[in-house]
Computed example of a mutant assay.
Amino acid sequence: MDERWYTMDRPKSKYPKMSMSDRAAQFAPFAALTGHKEAILEQQRTTQTKRILSNEEKLRINEKIIELMNLKLKCRITYFEKDKKKSGGKYYTATYTFKRLDELNKTLIFKENAQIQIDDIVDIELLEQ
Rank of each mutant, 00 (worst) to 15 (best):
T7R: 08
E57W: 05
F80Q: 10
K14I: 13
I52E: 08
S21C: 00
S13Q: 13
Q26N: 09
A25C: 09
Q129I: 15
L41E: 15
N113Y: 07
Q26L: 15
K111S: 03
Q117P: 01
G88C: 09
M8H: 04
T49H: 15
Q26W: 06
T34G: 06
E128P: 11
A28K: 09
I40F: 01
I124L: 05
K82G: 04
T34E: 11
G88E: 05
L59K: 14
T95L: 05
M18Y: 10
I66G: 07
D123S: 03
E63W: 09
M18L: 08
D123E: 03
D120A: 08
E81D: 01
T95D: 07
E56L: 03
I124G: 00
T107Y: 02
E57T: 09
Q26E: 07
R76W: 06
L59V: 12
K64I: 12
T47I: 11
I121N: 06
K86H: 12
L53T: 03
E103P: 12
L68R: 12
Q115P: 04
L101Q: 12
M1K: 01
K74N: 14
I40T: 12
A28S: 00
K106N: 09
I116S: 05
I40R: 04
R60V: 14
I118V: 00
A31R: 00
D2S: 02
Y15T: 13
I118G: 05
E42W: 13
A31Y: 01
K85W: 07
L41W: 15
L108D: 04
I109G: 08
K90T: 11
L73K: 14
V122N: 14
E103M: 06
K58S: 01
M20N: 08
T97I: 07
N113S: 14
E57P: 03
G88S: 05
L73I: 01
